[in-house]
Design a binder for these strands. Structure first.
Length: 536
RNA sequence: GGGCCGUUAGCUCAGUCGGUAGAGCACCUGCCUUUUAAGCAGGGAGUCGCUGGUUCGAGCCCAGCACGGCCUACCA
């Protein structure tokens, strides 16, 4: 046990147990440990010396012993690191106060350096014993990488040119008790990056950039719509009847109402009620929940932008989509071109518009569209599993078309493309085209083979809507959990008259993926859904 | 649901033929007052994911399980 300045005794784990002089420190140490848990006490003391996290805790105890509060309440800083660096010409020689996490420490005898990282930058601290005094230098020597500190001192440039703060006063703001991931390689393990996103954010600059971009994207979407006169709305997430998409819902229960409720799978039916209510242009950015499989583009909870515009149709929605994507690309990439996973993308308008039936005809032949039987034969010839092989029923014509789109068309839509005019059968909320009652005015957005959005000219004929939902209810009775239910209140709203309206839904997470060159949806969701770690 | 791969120190990773655990970072000690992946010298640190099995002996071979990744299928 060594004695430091002012008779400070330093606690070392393990080693202290064997040291007679150190035994005096044990009561303090045990009190702290007992506060954690009874069982912890034994294991903590039995641990061999030298484990980094034990040493960090020992350093905490040593700091307390010399009267340092390791977790003080607040700290006034005068500058962020980036401000000192960017404004150095003006600030050189003047006093600044900065704060942040120490991401590296380089001891140098009776001096030392540290990299102090704050929200969007880094500045070097230079601590000299003859500047801060013996007492504070003793504190400095008990600090570890990962600790959060504040420092007041003069802005200067070192011999090698690094903008630094020559510290006059050093303040511990939060003692870290666990070591950070490796400083050079960062946190690599994907599971840990998702489960302990805070460590991912501390150690990986690219991760911070992705979520900064995400924030900007959402902000740009909001400003874009507000600028066009849209009202931002918040509609129910807990819904007694879910609709607006094909998906299984999460169920929950309201105790005092004794009511089964569902987490919404879409915002659609409530936003349309607002169009009935006269708001004319509404949007919502919020979470939807779908109780289905997870993969690179599907998360059980995801963020959707939905917007509805009275007196517009799906053509207007296509133009709106093009404008929004052009704006986003310009803001994030400085132009309309960017790459996603090695693929060149250019979102410059106008985008390709391809009719669904034309796209299907192109992959299975014109003849195959003459009858359902011909389409089945063509699909099977193309090697598609139509689901009947395991004793299931063959899908209807619309379902077949959808299957062919999924398997043979959509993956090849790399350049931005609107797939337009869908079969009515698979689009219960969209209005028919003027010239074909089996086709609706609907489009989906594809970029890089990923479906980014869905839009239609909204069905506003209440009687037709009742017939469409009636067909859905039948499917549901037949065991299709993803079919719509009848929403009487929504129908009643339509009976009061909804103006002709265009609607558009955009998967925000997928847009973020695309614009940040992220390979999967989990990479753009801060805390993606994970199975809990097994605790033993 | 199926296939393949992964799981070793807090982190990033080695680990040969089955022979009793390694490096770097981090942590500690000593030296070092302009370093910056600081340096030099020394030190400590492990439930080899879990449970069984085979074996004189298992990080390594076998089986099952858990978690994760990629692909695939299903669902729309």
């Amino acid at each position: 046990m060594e004695t430091r300045e002012k008779g400070v005794q330093i606690v070392r784990p393990g080693r202290a147990v064997r040291n007679v002089a150190a035994m005096r420190l044990q009561p303090d140490r045990q009190r702290t440990i007992a506060g954690l848990s009874a069982s912890r006490e034994a294991s903590e003391l039995e641990k061999p010396e030298g484990v980094a996290q034990d040493q960090m805790r020992a350093n905490l105890e040593s700091l307390r012993k010399i009267g340092i509060d390791p977790y003080p309440h607040r700290f006034e800083r005068s500058h962020r690191s980036s401000e000192v660096v960017d404004d150095f010409d003006r600030l050189e020689g003047s006093e600044v106060t900065v704060a942040g996490r120490m991401m590296a420490m380089r001891g140098h005898g009776k001096a030392g350096f540290a990299d102090l990282v704050d929200v969007e930058g880094k500045i070097q601290l230079y601590v000299r014993r003859d500047e801060v005094g013996d007492e504070q230098f003793a504190v400095w020597e008990l600090l570890n990488v990962g600790d959060i500190v504040g420092a007041r001192g003069e802005a200067f440039r070192t011999r090698s040119g690094e903008v630094s703060v020559k510290v006059k006063e050093l303040t511990l703001l939060s003692k870290a008790l666990l070591p950070l991931p490796e400083k050079w390689h960062g946190l690599k393990d994907k599971e840990l990056r998702y489960r302990r996103r805070y460590l991912d954010l501390i150690s990986n600059e690219e991760t911070r950039d992705v979520f900064r971009s995400r924030s900007r994207i959402v902000h740009i979407m909001r400003e874009f719509l507000v600028g066009r006169g849209f009202l931002e709305a918040e509609t129910p997430i807990l819904q007694p009847i879910y609709g607006g998409a094909f998906a299984r819902a999460f169920e929950t229960h309201h105790h005092s109402l004794d009511l089964k409720l569902y987490l919404r799978i879409a915002d659609e039916l409530y936003l349309k009620r607002l169009i009935v209510g006269g708001f004319e242009r509404v949007f919502e950015i919020g979470k939807d929940f779908r109780n289905e499989g997870m993969d690179r583009t599907h998360s059980p909870e995801f963020t959707q932008l939905e917007l509805y515009q009275a007196y517009a149709d799906y053509n207007v929605m296509m133009e709106t989509t093009e404008s929004l994507f052009e704006l986003l690309a310009r803001e994030l990439h400085g132009g309309t071109k960017f790459t996603w996973q090695g693929q060149e993308i250019d979102v410059k308008a106008p985008w390709k518009r391809v009719r669904v039936m034309d796209a299907v005809a192109e992959v299975v032949g014109e003849e195959a569209l003459k009858s359902k039987e011909a389409l089945v034969a063509a699909a099977q010839a193309a090697g598609l599993d139509l689901g009947d092989s395991q004793g299931g029923e063959l899908p209807g014509f619309g379902g077949l078309v959808e299957k062919i789109l999924d398997e043979l068309v959509e993956p090849n839509l790399i350049e931005p493309t609107f797939l337009i005019d869908y079969p009515l059968e698979i689009s219960p909320l969209a209005k028919q085209t003027a010239d074909d009652p089996d086709i609706v005015e609907r489009f989906e957005i594809f970029i890089a083979g990923i479906e980014l959005g869905n839009s239609f000219t909204e069905l506003n004929d209440p009687d037709e809507q009742v017939r469409r939902l009636g067909a859905q209810v039948e499917k549901r009775a037949g065991g299709d959990e993803e079919a719509h239910g009848m929403d009487d209140d929504f129908i009643m709203a339509l009976r009061h008259g909804m103006p002709p309206t265009g609607g558009l839904g955009i998967g925000v997470d997928r847009v973020v993926m695309l614009l940040t060159d992220s390979p999967g949806i989990r990479d753009v969701i801060l805390f993606p859904a994970m199975r809990p770690e097994r605790s033993e």
